[in-house]
Amino acid sequence: MRGLLRRFAENPAATAGLIMLAAILFAALTASFFFPGDPMAPRGAPLLPPDGRFPFGTDMLGRDVLAGVFHGARVSLLIGFLSAIVSVLIGVVVGAAAGFFDGAVDDVLVRVTEFFQTIPSFIFAILLVAILTPGVTSIIVAIAVVTWPPIARLARTEFMALRSRQFVEAAVLAGVPRLRIISREILPNAVTPLIVMGSLLVATAILTESSLSFLGLGDPNHISWGYMIGSSRTVFRQAWWLSVFPGCAIVLTVLAINLVGEGLNDALNPHLKGRVKFES
């Protein structure tokens, strides 16, 4: 563990990402402290450019854009992490079953996975949200439903590779129940690539949520960065600050999560990193 942390800290890009992510988490956690009350409530005159009182300006209804960016961090991170967790859970269960049991179970699960992969994911997400009526829960469900197949395929490959290893065969011969073999023997050894992929999935989920909100399919009762951009894109020529600040927030968050994910990948696979270094 200490080696892992050291390797991670030695990577400047990953450290920068972690600092950025910490800052965004800080914004999310302190949103109610710095900006109490509903961020959707008007605070001043509409369309004020950035100044001392409103560093990020106000929007078309006189709402504080800075407050929106802080509160929006909550929705974005909540949806990003929750949908990634749900997606990883679905993916691991399906992938583990397919990779471990082989045969008919594998065939059926792989066909189902492929079925989901053939549908364009963003269009599918739009469809799901539209059917389930827009809201935080329906967006999490939609993102999880469209993003689990790659996780399932990765988990399946890992499980198939590990299944024929000697320590697994030993466990089988010792009469350990299958569920226990899956959860105690194989999963811990397959978890590294899954963690890396899951962390990158958080970034994808945040982007998807922003796109849905941009298209007006967000939860209208919660402020989110995508909604802020979508609702102000028509006044971009009059009020650039409405789109630019939440846009920067999305870029920074997604960049930070990607850097952290890459850093995790390098730290968890020291051999891989060494090789890359050697070759370059």
């Binding site: 509903d38 959707m40 409530a41 008007p42 078309m60 209804l61 539209a130 009526t133 827009p134 007006g216 399919l217 209208p220 009762n221 979508g230 609702s231 028509t234």
Partner: peptide, 28 residues
């Protein structure tokens, strides 16, 4: 469109200010 969305949001805020909690119900 957005103009009508803003109207809904304003109504939610204005009624919220007198203690009437409004939930916006999105729809096509």
């Amino acid at each position: 469109g957005e103009m009508w969305d803003r109207l809904s949001q304003y109504i939610k805020q204005a009624l919220g200010a007198v203690g009437v909690e409004v939930t916006l119900q999105p729809s096509d």
